[in-house]
């Protein structure tokens, strides 16, 4: 039971330099990995590759020794840094959540999402509140792995603590694997069971 990147190579276009070269990485269920690196080391690219949003040029991404499924709800879900871009601006938030399959009241309660917000449009909520919806959507989809790309970088520390506490609790309960891309050393130490630095 593991998500792994096997010797992957990636670049944006044939004439561009390699962003990732011969990168290998493995994470088991129940493990929480913090990935850090200076800007330009391909942290976001790695997150996109692991979640199947991009295809590696060489090498493969394996989930339990099989490639990621091409159809259906993907068991590896990615959460972006900017929640306002990750929700359809014309959808009410109830619809945003329901896209993941079904509404889970316990997740809503854990995030303290007020029911009145479900009828609002994304532009009526702040970034911190929208990010709760994005994380809730990923959790409700029943994912086994969460890839969190700087999900709390744009948020204040109280909201950051709120969101991560829920994620960690849910991850424990469901034995999820978590890859958190972050530049915050203290945050990494707090949430991760293992840390890697891409620049090393």
């Amino acid at each position: 039971m593991a998500l792994e990147a096997k010797n992957i190579y990636f670049r944006y276009g044939r004439k561009q330099p390699w962003i990732l070269e011969d990168c290998t990485l493995k994470i088991d269920r129940g493990e929480r990995l913090a990935v850090s690196a200076p800007s330009g080391y391909g942290k976001t690219t790695l997150a996109l590759l692991l979640a199947g949003y991009l295809k590696p040029e060489k090498g493969e991404i394996l989930l339990d020794d099989k490639p990621l499924p091409a159809k259906g709800i993907c068991p590896v879900q990615l959460i972006y840094q900017h929640p306002e871009k990750a929700v359809n601006p014309r959808w009410r938030l109830k619809r945003v959540l329901e896209e993941s399959g079904k509404l889970r009241e316990d997740v809503l309660d854990a995030f303290g999402i007020e029911r009145a917000w479900l009828d609002r449009f994304p532009r009526e909520l702040s970034g911190g509140e929208l990010q709760r919806f994005c994380v809730a959507r990923a959790l409700m989809s029943g994912a086994d792995y969460l890839i969190c790309d700087e999900i709390s970088t744009m948020l204040d520390v109280i909201t950051q603590a709120q969101i991560w506490n829920v994620v960690l609790e849910e991850a424990d309960k469901r034995n999820m694997g978590i890859i958190a891309v972050t530049h915050n050393k203290h945050l990494a130490e707090r949430i991760a069971t293992r840390m890697i630095d891409l620049s090393e």
């Binding site: 979640a51 199947g52 949003y53 159809k71 259906g72 709800i73 993907c74 879900q77 990615l78 972006y80 900017h82 871009k85 990750a86 929700v87 359809n88 896209e99 993941s100 399959g101 959507r137 989809s141």
Partner: peptide
């Protein structure tokens, strides 16, 4: 190229569904 369309795909929605709803 919007992120919410990419998310929708990973939530198992088909191309036709995305066309109609997003």
């Amino acid at each position: 190229s919007q992120q919410y369309v990419a998310v929708s795909r990973k939530l198992g929605k088909s191309g036709g569904w995305i066309l109609v709803h997003h």
